[in-house]
Amino acid sequence: MKVYTLMCLLLATLATMTQGQTRVGFYSTTCPRVETIVRNAVQTAVRADPTLAAGVLRIFFHDCFVNGCDGSVLLDGPSSEKTAPPNVPLRGFEVIDAAKSQLETACPGVVSCADIAALAARDAVVLAGGTSWQVPLGRRDGLVSQASDTVNLPGFNDPISVQIRKFADKNLNIQDLVTLVGGHTIGTGACVVFSYRLYNFNNTNQPDPDINPAFLPQLRALCPNGGDGSRRVALDTGSVTRFDNSFYANLRNGRGVLESDAKLWSDPTTRPIVQRFLGLSGLLGLTFNVEFGRSMVKMGNIELKTGSQGEIRRVCRATN
């Protein structure tokens, strides 16, 4: 009787552990071609438009920071997360849709949209020249998507203290913060979100002192005062579609485009980590590609919905 009771407790414990975790190879028997199908969909899209790599990566980040990695950012609706100002510029939803459509043919009702977003983000990084990592799977799709929930997203003008708090709220530390923001090594930002730094920073009628004076004319030429705020500018000058650590070199050289990015170098809390990525400090160096994969896996486990929670959507833009 005691042995039976112990076995029941052990099985219950294991079931609980499985309920709240993702794992590599989750679909190995139920949908063995899942990674190949998602990779092919991302590859087709990125080869046709290399800028989509950054878009697909951003989708996963914006998904995970709002109610966890549950595909809620993929849902359409008049007040869904997609409609919130930080998410309006997101691109690449059609890539997720294409992968989902193919997976519903190969193994209907099995693979979540949240897991597709996680795999697609990894594949986008690899196609941009980054290093691959294993993606634990087993997420379920959320049922709720509200624009009001996006206040948790890090902002383009957040001071480092606020960035640290927002990441800590998601169980991500300062190194995760500096590493994941390094995803800005690919992609662009609209003039409207940083041009205030060029002309009237903090109502001083002067540019942000964190901007290298030699870089300022280049940014002003791209974003004239009172010009087209929707014009987009590379966040990593000279490497907009290449996934590498040149982003950190640009921060060191005063060539950060977003205020929140530039602060990674000017703030003494985060500068040592940037230095480690550049091999500049006396501390052990960090390899960006390796650390990025680790932090992506960590971020991918934010507020999981697994087991019987949520659902497996038939299409990623709507609940069942």
Score class of each variant (00 low, 15 high):
A15K: 00
T36Y: 13
H62L: 09
G20P: 02
S28Y: 05
P78A: 12
F93R: 02
T105Q: 11
D49E: 13
T13L: 14
S28A: 05
V34I: 12
A98T: 13
A99P: 13
A114I: 01
L57F: 09
V38Y: 08
D49C: 01
A106G: 11
P50S: 06
P89H: 08
R47F: 09
R23P: 00
V24L: 12
T22V: 12
L9P: 04
A48S: 14
G92Y: 10
R23H: 12
C113Y: 09
T16W: 11
T51P: 01
G92I: 13
P50F: 01
T105M: 12
E104R: 05
A12I: 01
E35L: 03
F26K: 14
A106V: 03
Y27V: 04
D97I: 01
T44H: 02
N67E: 15
D70C: 15
G92P: 00
A106N: 04
L52A: 04
G77Y: 01
A99M: 05
R91F: 08
T105S: 13
D115K: 10
A48Q: 15
Q21S: 06
V46L: 09
D115S: 15
S80K: 03
P86Y: 01
A41Q: 03
D63Y: 07
G109A: 02
L10Y: 06
V110Y: 03
S80E: 04
T83C: 09
G20V: 07
N87I: 14
S101T: 06
V34Y: 07
E104D: 05
A45C: 05
Y27L: 13
Q19P: 02
P108S: 08
A48Y: 07
K100Y: 00
L74K: 10
K100W: 00
V46E: 06
G68Q: 07
F60S: 12
A98V: 06
G92V: 09
Y27Q: 15
R33K: 12
A12W: 00
L11N: 06
S28L: 02
F26R: 07
L90Q: 09
V56Q: 05
A99L: 04
E104C: 05
C64Q: 05
G71H: 11
K100E: 00
T36W: 15
L74I: 05
C64R: 02
C69Q: 04
G25V: 02
V56D: 10
G25Q: 02
L103W: 03
V56M: 08
C8D: 07
V38W: 02
T16A: 12
A53F: 09
Q19S: 04
V46K: 01
A53W: 02
R23C: 07
Q19I: 00
A84Q: 11
L103S: 06
A12H: 01
